[in-house]
Each structure stands twice: as structure tokens, then as C-alpha cells.
Amino acid sequence: MSARAAVAAVVDPELRVLTIEDLGVLRDVTVEPETGRVTVTITPTYTGCPAMDVIRADIRAALAAAGHPDAEVRTIYAPAWSTDWISEAGRAKLAAAGIAPPGPAAGSGGPVALTLSVRCPRCGTADTEQLSRFGSTACKALWRCRACREPFDHLRAL
């Protein structure tokens, strides 16, 4: 398997329906033709994201299993990750897993734009309410649907 394909298939440890490529965490994979050395560049969703160590280990394991034992994982911080980098496929996978995908990110530097409504990923209604601005991980908020009464996670725009 190509190094790129092996890395792109690594699953995010906290959002297990997404690959790190879907999530936009994977920025680049290069293979040195001479030595076969692989350099993977990733960027964290949040600075304190506790999943980064697991992601690095999973990338190295996936590359080793695909026949690329000589690998380096680099972490970059600029440009800063944005939820706008989550792919269309990733958004569909999130919704299918009951996690409302983010809207467009607000302009950086200014005050946070309040999300007025988030569609319920189960029944599709916009009649929902925010229960908590912070959810089970740094990237999520907790919402509830007023129609079907189900609570759900919302990946908030960043």
C-alpha cells in the first residue's frame, strides 16, 4: 500500500467515524525516493488535543504495517486548523453517526459568531437547543432536539 493511502486511512481516536484525512488533520505525506523515508505532517484540531500522541503512534504503526518502517511525523501549527477543512465525506460521516457537523467558521480574530440553530442529525429539524457550550471533547458542544428530544453532539465551528 502506498504511504499516503496507509496514513490517510488512520482513524481519529475520538471521532472514530472519521479518518485523519476527513478531519483535515493530515496535511502532507512525502516519500524520499532514495531512502524510502516517509515524512508525515499533521496539525492538531486544538492545541491541547490529548489525541495527538495516539494519532502519531497510529500513523507510525500504519506505515510500518504497510511496509514503510522509516517514518517521521511532524506537527505544524500554521495555518491553524479550521473546521472548514473537514471534507464533505467527513461531514456526511459525522451526520450519519449522530454528530451535527459544523457550519462555516467565523472570521478569525473577531468575536465568536453565535450559531443560531443546528439541525438535529437524527430527525433533521432546526428546532434544537444548546445544552452546553462545551461537550465530551474540546471540539464539541452538547445540543438537544426539541422535536425528537434526543441529545446530540455538535462539532462546533472553529
Binding site: Y46, T47, Y77, A78, A80, S108, G109, P111, V112, L158
Partner: peptide, 21 residues
């Protein structure tokens, strides 16, 4: 300082949310 600018760019997006809270 590009390295400091990158850290600030990342952390600043998060701080905007703290301020709002």
C-alpha cells in the same frame, strides 16, 4: 517570529471562545 506567530494564531482562535464563555 514565525514559530511564535503560528502558536498565537492557533491559541487565539481558542481564546475567542473562552472570552465568549
Amino acid at each position: 517570529d514565525e514559530r511564535l506567530a503560528a502558536i498565537a494564531g492557533k491559541a487565539g482562535k481558542e481564546v475567542a471562545y473562552h472570552l465568549d464563555h
